[in-house]
Amino acid sequence: MTQATYLLDTGHTKAQAFAMLQGVLSAIQSGNAGATPPAETAAGMIWVDTDARALKMRNVPNNGWITLGSFASGTFVPAGVNQLTEAQAKDAFSDIYGAVTGQILAAAIDARVRATGAPVNEAVWHPYDMVRVGDGADGLFWDHSLTGNQRYVQTPDFEDGYEYMLRIMGMEWHGYGNKRPTIKGFIEQTGRYASAMAMAGDVEPSTGFHVMIRLLFPRVPSPFFGIEGKIPSGQIRTSTLGGNDRTVSRAEISWADGDTDIRAGKMYLYRRREYISG
């Protein structure tokens, strides 16, 4: 225990006064460390409680001790600070505030970005139907092996606040000559489709067509609907929507604007958050 009296005694000899001063300085240096409280107290006084392994301070009325923190674990843990668990730190919907360790913080960040079960990060491209990472959603909205031949294939409806990416895998047609795959946007305000846009140059029959194209801000009011992306050849043009405030609510894919069936392939839709349309 390193505690001492702070009360001066005018009757002390020089040697006694020097010994008292040494004791006071030692007590101050150790924070009045001891298993029991100092006998003499004052408001704001610090006491290192070696029994409870805690740092305490005397309150302003000088009638009690305030626990500032604990060093029982070998490190100092401030009192009154809520320590978040890993589960609380990872919960994107939690409104609980508190301190976290670097390890828990790293795990929480990892969960928010890519860990299984975390809410999907909407700022990056992700399957349009994915809610949480690892929930099994892959964005597939059309599979020839399940539906059979179709003249037109429509995407799911677009939502405000997102831009979209269309991925076509192995789209085929059968017959003679060559054809161009085309895409059209459904104009929400008029209830009709815009003119078809060619996605590539002519494609031979029974040749799998593979492409990823970005559907440029379909929910942002505009007189145009455009696409861009990886295409093997040819030109991509923009559709005129017939007004300055037109929005596109879905897209339609076909061969040469629907003059023959789509006889093979799969189609996927992805999206990411934008803050123009809502």
Rank of each mutant, 00 (worst) to 15 (best):
Y162C: 01
A15P: 06
M20L: 14
R180N: 15
P127G: 10
E252G: 04
D261Y: 13
T13P: 05
S195C: 03
T247F: 01
A79N: 15
I109L: 15
G161A: 05
G191R: 09
D138R: 02
E188R: 12
M130C: 09
W125A: 05
A106C: 02
Q29M: 04
S249D: 13
D49C: 09
F93A: 08
E252R: 14
G175H: 06
H210E: 15
A115Y: 00
G265S: 04
Q150W: 02
T2E: 05
G98Q: 09
L166A: 12
T260C: 12
A33L: 04
F158E: 09
T5K: 00
S73A: 14
W65Y: 06
G170T: 02
H12N: 13
G201K: 11
E252I: 11
G102Q: 10
M57E: 06
T207E: 10
A33I: 03
T182M: 13
N178Y: 14
D110E: 07
F225L: 07
T247M: 03
F224H: 15
G175F: 09
L25N: 12
Q189C: 08
G226R: 11
F186Y: 15
M171Y: 11
G161I: 06
T10S: 12
V113F: 09
I96Q: 13
Q83T: 12
I183A: 00
K266H: 04
V24H: 05
